[in-house]
């Protein structure tokens, strides 16, 4: 299962500490409608469809791959151009660290990932200062929240935890997409 335009691999990066935007806790990036238009600008029709997979088949799939960011039944939008299917968009959510990240994954007619867009991000975006010493400057002695060491910090893959879960989510959608295509025929 290859995601050509969405590379699973990641550059190792330093941990992140600073916030860019105020109120970055629930950022709404795109509406579903805007995302669909961005991902398939030449489409003439977006039609919600159901998965051909049964819930049991879906469960079997998830039992095999054990998704790290939580397993949901995605919403599926069939993308058409003049009546012909040119791709699908899966509207899915993964648990980042603690909160749900809504994202849209566009898959081409040939089964490859075309684009991934974050729709809503409810987490702190990795902006919070992760350094416990640094936090202590503000927290003082009364702190009861344990510093989340290693939580979301650049690690083996260099990816933050949220990003890794999203990557796993896209990988799951690709498998689901292939299984669903098989179930349709």
């Amino acid at each position: 299962m290859q995601a050509n335009r969405f590379l699973i691999a990641a550059l190792p990066v330093a941990a992140i500490a600073v916030a860019a935007a105020p109120g970055a806790y629930a950022v709404e990036y795109l509406s579903v409608g805007a995302a669909l238009k961005l991902m398939f600008p030449d489409a003439t029709d977006f039609a919600p469809v159901s998965l051909a997979l049964t819930i049991e088949q879906l469960r079997d799939l998830d039992a095999r791959i054990r998704p790290s960011g939580g397993a949901r039944v995605p919403r599926v939008i069939e993308v058409r151009r003049d009546g012909r299917e040119i791709g699908r968009v899966y509207l899915d959510g993964v648990i980042g660290k603690t909160e749900l990240i809504d994202y849209a994954t566009a898959i081409d007619a040939d089964g490859r990932v075309r684009q991934v867009e974050i729709l809503t991000y409810r987490e702190s975006h990795g902006y919070e200062v992760r350094n416990p010493r640094w936090r202590q400057q503000f927290v003082g002695k009364g702190v009861t929240t344990p510093p989340a060491l290693g939580d979301g910090i650049a690690n083996i893959s260099g990816a933050t935890l949220s990003c890794r879960h999203l990557t796993d989510g896209v990988r799951r959608l690709l498998m689901l997409h292939a299984a669903d295509a098989a179930a349709r025929t």
Binding site: A14, A19, Y25, S124, Y127, R130, V139
Partner: peptide
């Protein structure tokens, strides 16, 4: 540019104003 106030996660502390510049952080 804001950092999150660990005492009050819904609050942000203003660190600096950035104009035509870049900022990177290594920490934790």
């Amino acid at each position: 540019i804001h950092v999150r106030d660990p005492r009050e996660p819904s609050r942000l502390l203003r660190l600096a104003d950035l104009q035509d510049a870049a900022l990177a952080t290594s920490g934790g």
